[in-house]
């Protein structure tokens, strides 16, 4: 452990809290319809959108109507992104003449971006036209985040209102989320990224001459593009020399900003935030992780303000922060360890600080950008998987077995540690209801949360929301490791191959989108299976969340008495963390034992 992790984490959390505090208050006011001078400037645009779409902003919705609007809107989004990919060859802004994307990949990508997952089975710079990137993917980056924001605001209204039959108007919540929260933040961050060197253009890709020729080895392919194998079945390698390199171009900064602030994570380039055109400097890297946590952290404070007790928001935010900090330390500690397999070969892996520049980082540098190093990569990995972002600045697949287990487990906790825009908080509030229910059982009182009695229907919906994720992850993984098409995509045999499949389904169901890269997932089997996982992982949680919102809004608010469980203090924070960890642990430990745990033991046993 070195001092850098303490410094970087402390600085990150301090700046995060300073930014989240005013933003949380701003979002609460915006979503309640209160005006700022800045907002009043855009009110005509908001009214024009309502008129154009035939929406009456004064009419509120019950939970079922709200849920129906969410599903309908997102269905149209999937159809739109699917059509764009299939027709991109005949549409403008395609200087590289990209062909139409295959049907199964289009299907997967459309659902991936609409559900805020941004799982990418394709290589961005070799597959998508600029029009598809901008009108399809970037637009859904805004819309999917706005959907999450709208849903969590509806849920907060469930707590804040009493004896009400409505939870808001989806179209109004959605429009305000895009217009007043996501667009201004994305604009600010995009301009900052451009200042740091992120590119923003519509140029054709550039071919440049290398300073010196590069010789490299790659598998030899036949005319059909399949690997050539020798008599023993081993892939034949060929050695090539190149003097030129093609540099992909594109409108990257505008997509990069919303990719982070909307917790989307889908990179313009395949290398994502490890690519110098997406994440050029350490400062850009810092702002990227800040942007990921910004809205999820702010929403906790929005929650406190809207329910009339700021301490409630701080309690939830404290629980999230404590889990995150512990996980960041664990990931960093694992990555700082030297690889025992390399030590066995006599390689010196001790940190080398004797030179003017660092020659040996002293830990696991495989798959990491030397520009960022172990600490910034470990923090990025923890942030991107604690939130449901999924952007990466290093290869999670190359982490040590235990270092890789941290992002995997954070995803499996249900993306409630900060989580996605909106989805993180509504997921955590589901656990908060579970926590007060368990506390109620322990002390023999009817459970209450924020003065609302938690009854049978609410607990049925909580159970559904919590169980859907593990069911889809574990059943999906089990199917994939049993059928031929699933096993065909596993490039690393054994425990690590299992981890890759488990990570893929965990990431898809919980709408994260990052990957253990060793899985060949752009096949019809994985494209379809993961699309099912993403859609139902998203909407089978949103539906019960809205049902709970509707149910809570109808209830009367009970007065707080000396018998009420305080939900703003350390005791509740510990109880909430316990619920999240224990439910996550009980659900996934057997699967984790088959993957990263076996891999770790095997590595240290010298296998």
């Amino acid at each position: 452990m070195n001092a850098s992790i303490y410094f970087q984490l402390a600085l990150f959390l301090a700046v995060l809290m300073l930014c989240a505090w005013p933003l949380g208050s701003y979002i609460a006011n915006i979503m309640s319809g209160e005006g700022y001078r800045f907002v009043r400037l855009f009110k005509p645009a908001e009214r024009w959108i309502y008129r154009l779409c035939g929406v009456d902003p004064e009419i509120e919705m019950g939970w079922k109507q709200y849920a129906f609007a969410v599903i309908l809107f997102n269905l149209l989004g999937v159809l739109m992104v699917y059509a764009l990919q299939r027709l991109q060859a005949d549409l403008p802004f395609n200087p590289q003449a990209m062909a139409a994307v295959t049907p199964d990949s289009s299907f997967n990508t459309a659902i991936s971006f609409v559900t805020n997952t941004n799982w990418q089975g394709y290589t961005g710079e070799a597959t998508m036209s600029y029009l598809t990137q901008m009108l399809g993917l970037a637009v859904q980056n805004f819309f999917s985040a706005a959907t999450g924001l709208a849903v969590v605001i509806a849920m907060i209204r469930g707590f804040a209102r009493h004896s009400a039959t409505t939870i808001g108007n989806f179209w109004v919540d959605f429009t305000r989320s895009v217009l007043y929260v996501l667009l201004p933040l994305a604009l600010l961050i995009a301009v900052f990224f451009m200042g740091q060197g992120v590119i923003q253009n519509f140029d054709a890709y550039k071919t440049v001459t290398l300073i010196e020729p590069l010789t490299y080895t790659q598998p030899k392919l036949d005319a059909a593009g399949a690997p050539v194998v020798d008599a023993a079945g081993v892939a034949v390698q060929e050695t090539l020399t190149t003097t030129t390199q093609t540099l992909p171009m594109g409108p990257v900064a505008s997509q990069e900003a919303i990719k982070m602030v909307g917790t989307n994570g889908g990179g313009f380039f395949n290398a994502n935030s490890a690519h110098p055109y997406e994440n050029p400097t350490p400062l850009a890297n810092f702002v990227q992780i800040l942007a990921i946590f910004l809205i999820p952290a702010a929403l906790c404070l929005t929650f406190g303000k809207m329910v009339g007790d700021a301490r409630q928001g701080w309690a939830v935010l404290s629980a999230m922060t404590l889990i995150f900090v512990v996980m960041a330390f664990l990931a960093n500690a694992a990555e700082m360890q030297a690889n025992p397999a390399l030590a066995g070969m006599g390689l010196d892996q001790t940190p080398n600080l004797s030179q003017s520049h660092l020659l040996q980082a002293g830990g696991n540098m495989e798959g990491k950008e030397t520009r960022f190093g172990i600490v910034a990569t470990s923090i990025f990995a923890t942030v991107t998987t604690a939130a449901s972002c999924g952007a990466v600045n290093g290869m999670h697949d190359s982490f040590t077995a235990l270092g890789g287990m941290v992002p995997l487990w954070l995803i499996q906790l249900g993306e409630v540690v900060f989580g996605g825009v909106g989805s993180g908080l509504y997921g955590m509030l589901i656990f908060a209801i579970l926590a007060v229910f368990i506390a109620g059982l322990m002390i023999g009182r009817t459970p209450e949360y924020l003065g609302k009695k938690i009854e049978a229907f609410d607990m049925k919906m909580v159970s559904l929301a919590i169980l859907v994720g593990p069911f889809l992850v574990l059943v999906g993984t089990a199917i994939a490791v049993m059928v031929t098409d699933g096993k065909a995509g596993i490039l690393n045999p054994g425990a690590h191959g299992f981890s890759e499949v488990l990570y893929a389904f965990s990431s898809a169901v919980n709408n994260n989108g990052s990957a253990f890269a060793g899985l060949s997932a752009n096949t019809p089997f994985y494209n379809i299976m993961l699309a099912i996982a993403m859609w139902f992982g998203r909407f089978l949680i949103i539906v019960p969340v809205l049902a709970i919102a509707g149910s809570l809004a109808r209830k009367k608010r009970l007065a707080t008495t000396s018998g009420s469980l305080p939900t703003h203090g350390p005791l509740f924070v510990v109880l909430l963390i316990g619920c999240v960890i224990i439910v996550g642990a009980l659900t996934y430990i057997p699967a984790l034992a088959l993957g990263p745990v076996i891999e770790h033991l095997s590595l240290h046993a010298g296998n």
Partner: peptide, 30 residues
């Protein structure tokens, strides 16, 4: 092939709407 995937998308949405109905029958209408 496109028709199959488009049908799949609509089927997903239809199934989700059925879940809404199922949830309301569990007591969400009360």
């Amino acid at each position: 092939m496109d028709l199959i995937y488009l049908t799949g998308i609509i089927l997903f949405a239809a199934l989700t709407l059925l879940i809404i109905k199922g949830c309301s029958r569990l007591g969400g209408d009360l």
